[in-house]
Design a protein around this nucleic acid. Structure first.
Lengths: 340, 340
DNA sequence: CTGTTAGCGCATTCAC
DNA sequence: GTGAATGCGCTAACAG
């Protein structure tokens, strides 16, 4: 029931009739050891089923060969592909990855990060919800790479959804819509801020009236319950914070008998659903896998080559037009939208 | 750029003018220390920003307060909610979690597990792809809990999708279908075996002809490319390994102009898509969050109370009828289905 | 209740 | 190229 004691470096040393230092070197700097003894030690190790204890090694060197990835919520489909990518890359450099899924809570995020800092050589913070200061403090204790958070002084990779969002607004304008509603995501989200201002700017540029309706949470449910406010605002076109929210909006609209795209156009963001909604969702493209890969590479660069901390890698996006956008209905439903 | 040296137990001891052991005890068994010195030590620690180094602690005690969760693929939406649940539970007991996403590869799974075994007190293996023997070997080096793998001698939680799958077959029979095709998932998957035999048994029971068509991978793409074989088999009703595959089937069917559910009924499994497909997918319910919670509790029981290793917790499922199933078409399309 | 001593398993000086 | 000694930061007996 309890684990059998693992063989230690001493066991191997004894078996191979060398000193412990030699065994240690065989596994860390083999270049300084003769072929012959390497073979002998390796064999003894194999036979005993020995492999260096990572904990002891970490205590001695200060290096853990672990990293941590933080996301606001693993269950949000935007993140898993990114996580998978980081894990794959990490694996390739023989590193293990801790997962921190903080349930959209900045507090949990901070607590977890503190807890993990001593066990990792670096962390990737994806769409962190904590404040700038908290991130900066963390950065003094552990190398950080940010994804979708634009903080000067830290390496970061940014998925520029503003570009695609802008396209979306222009696309809606071209379809004859006179106004657009943005269903907003989390306050603390950099991506949300990007998208929101992109909608506002492009809206102004194209002469569209822009309104903001917050989603309580960046989820299907959040989108669904935002529909009431949408209808009150007399929306004919809506851009949602992300695909999940958009999907919720679609569902909410369907419940109220509002036809998409005939009576109302809907645009998502992140393209995590593929063509899995009905009608297939027009959305802004997603590059989260690339973001994950790049983030890991930046981290690796810092760890192994002491790269600068100033990297700012931007991945641009574009609009993927599918079936939830259509020309504005001829006869716009008038409501008391602006009143309250 | 390099991290400032963390304060150690000695620093705190000096500052509080006590021995290192006392400091140690304040953080591990405060009940044996007087109120007064606890306060003094705590204060000194706080001021220095000290907290016990987990690595040193682990080396000394053999306890890491880490666990690992393995899944075949984080990006498969079945797993994230389960992972999130485990992580939340772990956090509540002040444990951190490693993630092992193995890309559906048994080999990667084994390698990762070996690598991680020395850093965790236990692991949760969700739908492992490795062989029984490999799992058993691993179990000698590290406490294990299995999810969706029925291996005698190890604690396990099983989502009994057979129950819901059976309902699905009966449902299709009741709708007048004469045959059903099961689009199979991974060979190494316990869930797949369960579902497959459930289809076969219930099919026999209800007098349905049953055929099996494998999906290359348990993904959207896998389902989509299985459609060709489906058509060749002249399917009027199909049950897919999971929702993702079902969604692929839906897409493939749509491409060929086959109407769902009128010309062909489709049933998924795991209910991970909610009502997000069109038409909304009839599927077998999912209890992955509960599975995650239960799995962690079993692990905790083993770790803290030395619970038996014989636990076998079954979560049953049922059919969720939505819109992708309908009565069999009057006129069945005849094809050369059985020929090759 | 608290201090002293020893050691977890390894990497790293420094000698030879 | 290899061995002997020392310490990483902490917990665990064993005293008192």
């Amino acid at each position: 029931m309890n684990r059998p004691p693992e063989p230690t470096i001493s066991d191997v040393a004894k078996a191979a009739d060398v000193s412990r230092s030699t065994v240690s070197r065989v596994f860390s700097r083999p270049e300084r050891i003769s072929e012959a003894t390497i073979l002998r030690v390796r064999e003894a190790a194999e036979q005993l089923g020995y492999s260096p204890n990572p904990t002891a090694r970490a205590l001695s060197t200060g290096l853990h060969r672990n990293i941590a990835v933080f996301v606001p919520d693993v269950a949000n489909p935007f993140f898993p592909p990114l996580i998978a990518e980081v894990q794959t890359e990490a694996e390739a450099t023989d590193r293990c990855v801790f997962l921190g899924s903080s349930g959209e809570s900045a507090e949990r995020e901070v607590r977890l990060a503190r807890r993990l800092a001593a066990q990792v050589e670096g962390m990737v913070l994806v769409s962190p919800r904590m404040q700038d200061e908290e991130i900066l403090v963390l950065a003094t204790r552990c190398p950080l790479v940010l994804v979708n958070r634009d903080l000067v002084g830290l390496p970061r990779v940014l998925i520029d959804s503003a570009a695609g969002t802008r396209e979306a607004v222009l696309h809606l304008a071209a379809l004859g819509h006179a106004s657009v509603v943005y269903v907003a995501g989390p306050e603390a989200s950099w991506s949300n801020a990007e998208r929101r201002t992109a909608v506002e700017r492009a809206g102004a540029e194209a002469g569209l009236k822009v309104r903001i309706v917050p989603a309580a949470t960046p989820t299907f449910e959040g989108g669904r319950s935002a529909v009431k406010a949408l209808l009150r605002a007399g929306a004919t076109a809506v851009i949602a914070f992300d695909d999940l929210v958009a999907q919720g909006v679609l569902a909410g609209l369907a419940e109220k008998g509002i036809a998409v795209p005939d009576a109302c156009s809907v645009v998502g963001c992140d393209d995590v659903l593929g063509a899995a909604t009905w009608p297939a969702l027009t959305t802004v493209s997603n590059r989260s896998e690339e973001a994950g890969r790049k983030a890991f590479q930046l981290l690796l660069g810092r760890l192994e080559r002491g790269d600068s901390t100033q990297a700012r890698h931007v991945l641009t996006t574009s609009l993927v037009i599918r079936q939830t956008t259509a020309p504005a209905a001829r006869k716009t439903t008038q409501t008391d939208g602006g009143r309250r």
